[in-house]
Design a protein around this nucleic acid. Structure first.
Lengths: 194, 194
DNA sequence: CGCAAACCAGAACGAACGCTCTATCCAGTA
DNA sequence: TACTGGATAGAGCGTTCGTTCTGGTTTGCG
């Protein structure tokens, strides 16, 4: 259900919405702009998303969830040591952010902040995405032998810190916050080693 | 220059703008809404801010900067041990977030994310605020005897992690991310103790 | 082949946006 | 009393917003 041979209209719309909302936020992104960027028309957008902008937002968040999760598990599985894996992940985020001209930070945090308490469906999709990413980190830690509770708490902080570091790195146009976060998270994880 | 006996119109406008942008983001906040909330008129807003919405955004960010810095230094100076102080700070943020009905998270991150690369003046004010907060943390750490470089890097991660934890706590409507962040940050700081 | 369903296209709607404009009020000065 | 300039007030500008509507085109199946 995910990929048509040539990217179908619906998928182009979701991708465009996801990218635009990542860069401009939810309120800053117009449906007409999404249609134009996706090389689709307004009619198509409302055909696939009768729920309007909110439904489009939910789809965009879910799309970003999947994309980021893929990038996350790729980074995490590349290293046997979870501490090093997290640092590698931070570096990957820094590289991607720099290469995009400091435009592509966390794909959902802007949307998350603008819609908290005002668009429950989007908020729920955002929470699900964060939970999804946490679970990936927690799973990696458990496989490396960390106790359940420790892995759970560490996963929370890993995602939080990467999130915050990405925000700061974007604002300062500097890789430093992400790289420092990688080092500190690795040190924190190591400190729980049995 | 800061406080007129009865809060002047300009101050009311800035406070309202700051609060609304904190909760709804920059794009999600209209100037007419700001005027209404501040019990002022549109004419007054443009009288005090001829630069329009961007100028108002800059003033709102600077206002939030000062407010948050006051809260931060109050929390930090309440404890002699900087590790405990950071944990106390995280708890204070969690309390404030919960008491506001999960509405008042970081006062500038929504604005920051929506305006990166599109409103240089706002971006600069946001960067200055983050730097300001970092400096407060770094100063506290140095006074407690941490080496310059260590204090600098720790301050970066402390602010980042609190930022990310506040975002996540808001999305999940849970104090846990902030409290866990406080514990982990304290542990991280302790691990650098000489 | 016939025809309904799915999909694409864009004009048009009311509302809201940021912003400009003119008009009025009022303290301070001469 | 007349003038001045900061502050207040809100109607209204052009634009864009999300959304709806009416068609046209393609597609799949009986």
């Amino acid at each position: 259900m995910a990929n048509t041979p040539q990217p179908g209209t619906r998928e182009r719309i979701v991708s465009a919405a996801s990218l635009l909302m990542q860069r401009q936020g939810y309120e800053g992104t117009g449906i007409k702009q999404v249609a134009q960027e996706a090389k689709a028309t307004l009619g198509s957008v409302y055909h696939f998303f009768p729920g309007g902008k909110q439904a489009l937002g939910v789809a965009a968040v879910k799309h970003a969830d999947q994309e980021f999760a893929a990038m996350l598990s790729a980074s995490l599985s590349g290293e046997a040591d979870p501490a090093k894996a997290v640092a590698v992940c931070a570096r990957a985020l820094a590289d991607h952010l720099r290469d995009s001209g400091w435009m592509d930070g966390c794909p959902i945090s802007a949307t998350a902040l603008e819609t908290t308490g005002r668009a429950p469906e989007i908020e729920q999709a955002v929470a699900a995405a964060f939970q999804h990413w946490r679970d990936l980190v927690a799973g990696t830690l458990r496989e490396a032998g960390f106790a359940e509770g420790v892995a759970h708490d560490l996963a929370i902080t890993v995602i939080n810190t990467l999130e915050g570091a990405e925000l700061t790195a974007q604002v300062f146009r500097s890789e430093t916050p992400l790289l420092v976060a990688g080092e500190h998270l690795a040190r924190l994880i190591d400190s729980y080693r049995s």
